[in-house]
Computed example of a mutant assay.
Amino acid sequence: MIKNLMHDPIFLAGKSEAATKEDLQIAQDLIDTLITHRDSCVGMAANMIGVKKRIIAFLDESGRTPTYTVMLNPEIIKKDGAYSTEESCLSLLGGLRPCKRHKSIKVKYQTLEFHTRIKTYTGWTAQIIQHEIDHCGGILI
Rank of each mutant, 00 (worst) to 15 (best):
L93F: 13
N73G: 11
S91L: 02
S88H: 05
E113I: 04
A13Q: 03
G14D: 06
K103P: 00
A18Y: 01
K52T: 02
H37G: 05
M71C: 09
L24S: 04
I105L: 12
K100I: 11
L96R: 05
K108Q: 15
L59Y: 03
G63Q: 09
K100M: 08
I10Y: 05
L24V: 09
F11G: 00
L72C: 06
L90G: 05
N47S: 06
T85M: 12
C41V: 00
H37V: 01
I10C: 04
I35L: 07
K106S: 14
I77V: 15
I49M: 04
I76S: 07
R101V: 01
T69P: 01
L59A: 07
M71F: 15
K106R: 15
V70M: 08
K53A: 00
L12E: 01
T20Q: 06
Q28P: 06
L34S: 01
I31G: 01
G63T: 10
L96Y: 14
I26P: 00
K52S: 12
S88V: 01
L24D: 05
F114Q: 10
F58Y: 15
K53T: 03
M71R: 13
K106C: 14
P98L: 00
H102K: 01
H37E: 04
E113H: 11
I26M: 04
S40I: 07
L12D: 01
S84W: 04
I35T: 12
S16C: 15
C99N: 05
A57W: 10
R38M: 08
Q110T: 06
K15I: 02
K108D: 09
H37Y: 15
T20D: 06
L93I: 12
K53W: 11
K100T: 07
P9H: 01
S84Q: 14
I10K: 09
I31Q: 04
Y109I: 14
N73C: 06
P66L: 10
L30E: 01
E87V: 04
C99L: 15
I56Q: 11
T69W: 00
I55P: 10
E75K: 14
I49F: 04
P98R: 01
S16L: 02
D60E: 10
R101E: 05
M44Y: 12
A46P: 11
G14Q: 14
K108V: 13
L96E: 03
M48Q: 15
T65W: 11
G43N: 11
F58T: 04
Q25C: 03
